[in-house]
Amino acid sequence: MPKQDYSELNPLWGDRGPVIVGFLCNWCSYRAADLAGTSRFGYPATLRDIRIMCTGRFDPTFAIKALRDGADGILIMGCHPGQCHYQEGNYKAMRRVALLRRTLAQLGVHPDRIQLAWASAAEGTTFTQTVMRMTETIAKLGPLQWRDTVSDLAPRTPAPEAEEVSHG
């Protein structure tokens, strides 16, 4: 995998690339990421991940905090629907993420910057592909620049419509 020059996709990147904060559930997606490592599946170094026990623990405040602190995107990954280690935590994440995307869209944050996806512990490839796909999406959207997008009081372009939650 050659080194990516993100400014080709969006000149605003300059010499840096996207920073994505990941919230991976302990049982499925964190292990999928481990498996990607063990299998030496390469993917761009854009994801900085946090292990939580379950996507049900994902508090939308975490995403807002990360975006405000400089992240360009948030990736929440859990077990496939119906396979949650805690029975239904991923369904709760689905609801919370849908609301979060809608709320952030109203603040001018493109909803694609928040993505929810699934990978079982055996799906190292699914994990890798999800990170690659998300990196490309964020790379095209460009840096978030929270301060300019959200924090200032200057009029801004209307936010795009929130799409359906990604089911990865």
Binding site: P2, G37, R40, Y43, A45, T128
Partner: peptide, 18 residues
């Protein structure tokens, strides 16, 4: 290891930063 060195072998600098 699993989340950096093994998956970013193509880009040592980025792996170190991560």
């Amino acid at each position: 290891r699993e989340h950096a060195s093994w998956v970013h072998q193509h880009d040592k600098e980025a792996a170190t930063e991560k």
